Computed example of a mutant assay.
Amino acid sequence: MSKLRYMLPSSQSLFVFEAAARNLNFKLAAAELNVTQPSISHAIKALERHCKVDLFVRDNRGVQLTEAGRLLYDSVRSSFQRIEQSLKTITSNDTHYITVAASTSLAAHWLVPKLSTFQQRHPGIKIKIVTTDRDVEPDHQVDMTIWVRQRRFERPNSWYMCDEIVFPVCSPAYLASKPSMHSVDDLAGHRLIHSFDPHRKRMGWSEWLGMLNSASSVIEPDVVFNDYQLAIQAALAGEGVALGWALTTDLLRRDKLLVRPLAVELRTQSAFFLIANERSSKSAAMQLLVEWVVEEAQAS
């Protein structure tokens, strides 16, 4: 049996101490706990007498934690956080979402349109999609995310999805209204759409053409966006030819909203990987989602 209950005047004293220590203000702690300020002071004094140590230094400026107070507060705070997380986990009416972070284009044009299939198979699994303009590390807020890394990339709780394949895309209307393209060198006569991401390295036209040894590798794009999603929207609107990634343009090409004006493609040395945090990767729901995402990516 734990001796903790004999070391405290009451269990309520821990809640009073935590609120007072966090706010460093007895009045604010009293308002938070819906009690009077004198009752906070009495409870703290009772705890100090019981522990035979000062937990706060009181002066005209307010209160500050003593060394003993800081030690106790660090312990109480971390313990409360663990208890709160455990209660959230076991409480039946607490809806748990699997949070997936992805780029806007990947979420909008690939992940979200496919999610209904997964949720029809597993209606009890709740999913939250958050978009991000940079690669994030899965943590207590993000269960899983998608990165582009070298094919040899390895780390715990990561799964290969598919290779990175890049090729030109445009709308059918643009293709029908412009001169035909027979080789990559013909791109020089077309309106090229370029995108760059401030926080992700994304291949541009010069790099793509250079890796194909095209004589037009020094070509300048006609319009530049700082978001790949905007470049895709411009291509959909018939504004020109954009570089498209096979995974993120898969459904747009199936629906014939985008077409490939050339058969040429570049398979880079990179690939898409699904990354999960260690805690989430152990759940049965997460394993089902991982299997589905990998299966869908490899079928794209």
Rank of each mutant, 00 (worst) to 15 (best):
V142W: 06
M144P: 02
T145N: 06
I146N: 11
V148A: 14
V148M: 14
R151A: 10
E154R: 07
R155K: 02
S158E: 06
Y160L: 08
M161R: 08
M161V: 11
M161T: 10
C162A: 14
C162D: 10
F167G: 07
F167E: 07
V169W: 08
A173T: 15
A173R: 14
P179I: 12
S180L: 13
S180V: 13
M181V: 12
D185R: 03
D186T: 02
D186L: 03
G189K: 06
G189N: 13
G189I: 01
R191T: 11
R191V: 10
L192I: 11
I193V: 03
H194P: 00
S195W: 01
F196N: 00
D197E: 09
P198Y: 03
K201D: 05
K201P: 00
G204R: 00
G204M: 01
E207M: 02
E207Q: 09
E207G: 01
W208M: 00
W208T: 01
W208D: 04
L209R: 07
G210L: 03
S214I: 01
S216E: 11
S217I: 02
V218Y: 07
P221K: 08
V223P: 04
V224L: 07
F225P: 05
N226W: 06
Y228C: 02
A231M: 07
G238W: 11
G240P: 12
V241K: 14
W245P: 01
W245F: 13
A246G: 09
A246M: 11
T248Q: 15
T249R: 12
T249I: 13
D250V: 09
L251T: 06
L251Q: 13
R253I: 15
R254G: 08
L257N: 14
R260P: 04
P261G: 10
L262A: 14
V264D: 13
T268W: 01
A271M: 05
F272I: 04
F273N: 03
I275V: 13
E278P: 04
S280G: 05
K282T: 12
